[in-house]
Amino acid sequence: MSRRGKGNAGLFLSYVILILLCLAAIYPALWIVMSSLKAGNSLYSDTLIPRAFTVEHYRNLFTKTDYPLWFMNTLKIAVFSTMFGTFLTLLTSYAISRYRFKGRKQGLTAVLVLQMFPSFMAMIAIYIFLLQLNLLNNHWALILVYSAGSIIPNVWVAKGFYDSIPRSLDEAARIDGAGHWTIFFKIMMPLTKPMITYVGLMIFNGAWVDFLFAQLILRTEEQRTLAVGLWSMVNQRNSTEFTLFAAGAVLVAIPVTILFIWLQRYLIQGLTAGASKG
């Protein structure tokens, strides 16, 4: 086989793999959407497209469950976590990128190593810590943990973004008498929109869909988030509200999907710029 023939075969195989991966990702999502529109309460169906469509499950979410309350709880936690977590991540990354201090390399290495361990390994320690602070069953406990925990997975990407910004901007501002905070807020922050978008979306998405930690901390019905509330609907042994659960899962995905589509341009810029230098 010629070199050109091998290249075409490799390209064809790549497209086949990509198509299979797309189908593997799209089919479960499509199945949930179709199940949420199906009459009855069973997820089992011999066809992907329901024989009878209904929006009754979506109506029942807002009339027969606490879904609106769960939605507002989750929105509150996600928004505040995004605000605080993004600020802490950018401030930490800026300091690491622009300043040289003792323990800087060791700290970066430690952050890189910590990313290799699953976050749930620290759940018991965090639980005991929050218990001592009397923060159990409190939304601010989740906001505190999500905000602080966002630094570890995002600091390397944000640092790479700051490394790509010329240091001459900092030096010119210092010559004009600007201090550290002035440089950060008035010069760096306006240039950091792509990275703010990327970090903010990652934090928002993580807080929006988190289940394990929210289930550990939140105890009462009025404090539940969407993930915990939907899980409680189908956790009981006699529960058959699977199509109702599917409708809730569809509505959970809509806000994040809209955000990703709306901010896609900034998201790609943040990823590419943050990966350009390390």
Rank of each mutant, 00 (worst) to 15 (best):
G5D: 15
N8P: 00
L11K: 14
L18D: 02
L23C: 15
I26M: 07
I26C: 13
Y27C: 15
A29C: 11
L30W: 07
L30P: 05
W31A: 11
W31C: 06
V33Y: 11
G40Q: 07
G40E: 10
N41I: 00
N41R: 12
S42W: 03
S42R: 05
S45D: 11
L48S: 04
I49S: 04
I49G: 03
R51H: 11
A52E: 15
V55K: 09
E56M: 07
R59N: 13
L61K: 02
T63F: 09
K64E: 07
T65H: 01
D66A: 10
P68M: 05
T74D: 03
L75D: 02
A78Q: 06
A78T: 10
F80Q: 03
T82H: 03
T82Q: 04
T89H: 00
T92K: 05
S93P: 02
Y94L: 07
Y99H: 14
R100K: 15
R100H: 14
K102D: 06
G103S: 03
R104N: 08
Q106S: 14
Q106C: 09
T109F: 09
A110C: 08
V111N: 11
L112S: 08
V113Y: 07
V113Q: 02
Q115T: 02
Q115D: 08
M116K: 00
F117L: 02
M121I: 10
M123F: 15
I124G: 12
F129M: 15
L135W: 13
L135K: 08
H139T: 07
Y146L: 03
S147H: 03
S147Q: 12
S150A: 14
I151G: 04
I152Y: 01
I152F: 06
V155Y: 04
W156F: 14
A158Q: 05
G160L: 13
S164P: 00
S168P: 01
D170N: 12
E171T: 09
R174Y: 03
A178S: 08
T182D: 05
T182R: 05
M195R: 06
L201T: 12
I203R: 02
A207C: 06
A207D: 05
W208H: 09
W208G: 07
W208N: 03
L212R: 09
A214V: 04
A214D: 10
Q215S: 11
L216I: 12
I217A: 04
R219D: 13
T220S: 12
T225D: 01
A227L: 01
V234R: 00
Q236P: 01
R237S: 13
F242D: 02
F242Y: 11
T243G: 07
T243Y: 05
F245Q: 04
A249N: 07
A249C: 04
P255E: 08
P255F: 10
T257Y: 08
I258G: 01
I258Q: 03
I258T: 03
F260Y: 15
W262V: 15
W262Y: 11
L263R: 11
L263D: 09
Y266F: 13
Y266R: 08
L267G: 09
Q269S: 12
L271K: 08
L271M: 13
A275N: 07
A275M: 14
S276G: 12
G278A: 11
